[in-house]
Design a protein around this nucleic acid. Structure first.
Length: 294
DNA sequence: AAGAACTCCTGTTGGC
DNA sequence: TGCCAACAGGAGTTCT
């Protein structure tokens, strides 16, 4: 659920309490999420420092002291809550930690040096945590096949044109496929296609080269993907159902949606009086304006 | 081999 | 109010 902007928002929230800090203790409350936890999950982390807390696409990636790579994915409903010790260096007993009513879905608690607690909660358990040793990290399966990072320099009209060549799938599915561009999800694909004025049902091959250069559609789409993601990161992500920033604050980009969740409402584009439609593609809702997305 | 369908799991929402 | 079906931000696996 969380797409790139939400994961980046979570990363920024966790960074001050996790990066460079030692994990004192790990409470692992069940054997699996979407996948089983790694063997010795807790013991491989306890007593070790998180050297870096990074993000790749929708994954949180931690370099752990000693050479392990910790890879975490939030799935649809994963979130982290941070509890800080009241007044700084106090005892655990003095935490103002209130178990939410859904604490049955608190699956992992990281107790950090300095007293912060970081709790992973995930109702649907589509998220996961995996670890890769020094010899395994280079071919870590979940990260290996990912396409380019949309906010990085590798995303270009040429790259997209190359990936889209000969593809018979529609634009929506092409952009959701993490092997092409890694980090987009249902919401931001809808929003980017809207901004670029492209109909989600068109074939991905409209993005392929014509006569040696990327098409005008591709030239339009690529900057819009960047723009919508950057704006969403600036807004702290989008809050729909469960998403919160790690400090409990709400993201507010959902107020800027042009199409997502706006079925039956009027198109925002100046001069367009289209009505936003919802269709189903690849089993997921697509929202678009049939009048100005062509 | 690409593309589509199915699957995991729980909570919320909307219609009757 | 209760009940039930539809739906939810993801993505690996399995089919055709």
């Amino acid at each position: 659920m969380p797409e790139l902007p939400e994961v980046e928002t979570v990363r920024r929230g966790l960074e001050p309490v996790m990066q460079g800090r030692r994990i004192v203790r790990v409470e692992q409350r069940r054997a699996d999420l979407r996948f089983p936890f790694p063997d010795d999950f807790a013991s491989r982390l306890e007593g070790r420092r998180i050297l870096t807390l990074g993000r790749r696409a929708k994954y949180l990636v931690c370099d752990v002291e000693g050479g392990d790579l910790l890879v975490m994915h939030l799935g649809m409903t994963g979130r982290f809550d941070i509890q800080l010790p009241k007044g700084g260096r106090k005892q655990l007993a003095e935490f103002t930690y209130e178990h939410g009513k859904d604490s049955v879905h608190d699956h992992v608690v990281f107790h950090m040096e300095g007293g912060a607690r970081v709790t992973y909660n995930d109702a649907r358990r589509f998220g996961f945590m995996l670890m890769f040793g020094p010899g395994e990290r280079d071919d870590c399966a979940v990260l290996k096949g990912l396409g380019v990072e949309p906010l990085g320099n590798e995303l270009s009209a040429d790259y997209v044109a190359r990936r889209a060549a000969g593809r018979k799938t529609d634009l929506k599915a092409f952009l959701l496929d993490q092997r092409n561009i890694a980090g987009l999800g249902n919401i931001y694909v809808c929003e980017a296609l809207y901004r670029a004025g492209l109909n989600p049902r068109r074939k991905a091959s409209v993005l392929a080269r014509r006569g040696g250069t990327a098409t005008e559609a591709t030239q339009r789409l690529v900057p819009e993907i960047r723009a919508v993601l950057e704006a969403a990161v600036r807004a702290g992500g989008s809050t729909l159902r469960d998403f919160r920033q790690a400090d409990g604050a709400l993201g507010y980009f959902q107020h800027s949606f042009d199409v997502y969740g706006r079925e039956g409402e009027t198109c925002h584009r100046p001069g367009c009086d289209g009505v936003i439609r919802r269709i189903v593609q690849s089993g997921r809702s697509t929202f678009y304006c049939p009048k100005c997305q062509t």
